[in-house]
Design a protein around this nucleic acid. Sequence first.
DNA 1: CCACGGTGGTAGA
DNA 2: TCTACCACCGTGG
Length: 181
Amino acid sequence: MAHFDRIMSTISPINGSDCWELPIETPLGVFSGQFTLRGLARLAFPRGRRRPGRRIDTDIPAQVRQWRTLTEHALRAALKGAEPKQLPPLDWSGATPFQRTVWTHLRKLRTGYTASYSQMARRIARPRAARAVGAACGANPIPVLVPCHRVRAANGALGGFSGGLDWKRKLLAAERVQLAV
DNA sequence: CCACGGTGGTAGA
DNA sequence: TCTACCACCGTGG
């Protein structure tokens, strides 16, 4: 997606605020976190050998540095299949009300538990909006920490994952979720 | 197993 | 507005 690439390469603002792209180191690779002064706005899976954040190592607000550290701890825990102790504030400023509702309910899914898209739709009191829930999951800018990987199809199949189904399988396996044969 | 249609939210024209 | 997408799902062959 072109918009994302532009942000990644130029560190242009997200939703009108300054943004810092910083590396989040984990045993599974270097993720990329994008922070505004409101909090963590995006988390991206490792890509290639490129290390994010190289060129903006200076001039990072102390608050943002602290959030980066918090994100790293939380992400390392989550990747091990543990419950993160604390998350940084999440910057959802660009999201629609529907997306916020879905993402808020995603955060209620505890480690190791899954729900189907239609169950999520019922939980947000829009029983016929399963497909829209899927779209909102796909638009989740903070995967893993906002656990959209815990939503699967009603028949037990995996469903999709914008970060690639290999990641979805890996994340669920770390949480010891039994997948359908 | 497959095909189909109902469906709600979103982005872009 | 209108339209074309979709990480869906239940029903009917």
